[in-house]
Amino acid sequence: HICSSFGFGRNYVAPAIADLAVEYPDLEVRMDVFDRVVDIVAEGFDLEIRVGDDIPGQHISRQLVANRRVICATPEYLEERGVPKTIEDLARHDCLVLKERNNNFGVWQLRDGQKDVTVRVNGQLSSNNGEIVLQWALKHRGLLLRSMWDVKPLLEQGRLVQVLHDYSQSANVWAVYPTRLAESGKLRACVEFLQAWFIRLRAE
């Protein structure tokens, strides 16, 4: 029984599970997606695939693949509003704010090399759904902090442009599971398959 967040679950975990089912035809998998914090023990899940490094200490976690969120916008937005040159410039921009799970609303926790920076951002539009926020960004409504997984093809196509390159937010992909399953061979095989799947995907 696996869970993940809506956007990442649908776009990445679901295709990975489809391939997992081919590799292990005897394995029965149920997958649920949520846009809230899940208590995997209380709610009876065997495995959570989650993005971000705020891992509950009472569980076992294994990093599947490195990932980060970057700041970007459409060329049209940047032409109209200017390109932010410093982190302080964000205060003068429309930022598309995502309220996701337990993240602080309207605050971007960024990293500049070795230094952590907290930036308060605001804008006209906010949502609890990452795909809606991405849709708004593509309609030139503001700056977006989004996982490199999601924006890489859009950056390559020139539909989005990354700004403030020195700043990003860690958003690694983790497998999290209860300690009671530490010795489960079935779970270990599943996690190792997913780790190889995500690393292969990133390399493509």
Rank of each mutant, 00 (worst) to 15 (best):
L201A: 14
S126K: 14
T179E: 13
D35E: 10
N128D: 03
G106Y: 10
V65R: 07
S61A: 12
V163H: 07
Q195D: 08
E192C: 12
Y177S: 02
W174V: 08
V163E: 14
V37Y: 13
C72T: 04
V38D: 00
R141C: 13
L78Y: 06
L125G: 01
R188H: 12
L134S: 11
I60K: 05
G52M: 01
R68K: 15
I60M: 03
E88I: 00
A18H: 06
S168W: 08
F6M: 08
A14T: 12
L125D: 08
E79T: 11
S4K: 03
N122Q: 09
P56K: 02
V41F: 02
L98M: 13
L181N: 10
G7F: 12
V22Y: 07
D26G: 11
H1R: 00
D112R: 07
R62S: 09
L194E: 01
K99T: 05
S127D: 13
Q157P: 09
V107H: 02
G7L: 07
I199V: 13
F45H: 03
L145K: 10
P178N: 15
G158T: 15
R188I: 04
H165R: 14
M148Y: 05
L98V: 15
G123P: 05
L201F: 07
F6G: 02
D150G: 08
V13R: 01
D54A: 01
R92L: 09
K152V: 15
T179N: 08
N11I: 13
D39K: 05
F8A: 00
P15S: 09
A66G: 14
L138I: 05
T179L: 11
L125P: 01
G82E: 14
L98S: 08
T118G: 00
D35H: 09
D150Y: 15
C190K: 10
R120G: 08
R202I: 07
F8L: 04
Y24V: 09
I132T: 12
S184R: 11
L47I: 00
F6Q: 08
V38C: 02
Q114K: 10
R146V: 07
L110M: 07
I132S: 14
Y12T: 02
H59M: 12
S4Y: 00
C3P: 00
V163N: 14
L138F: 05
S184A: 09
A182Y: 04
L27I: 06
S170R: 05
V38M: 02
G7A: 10
R62A: 03
V163Q: 09
T179S: 11
E192R: 10
E204D: 04
I60E: 04
P153D: 15
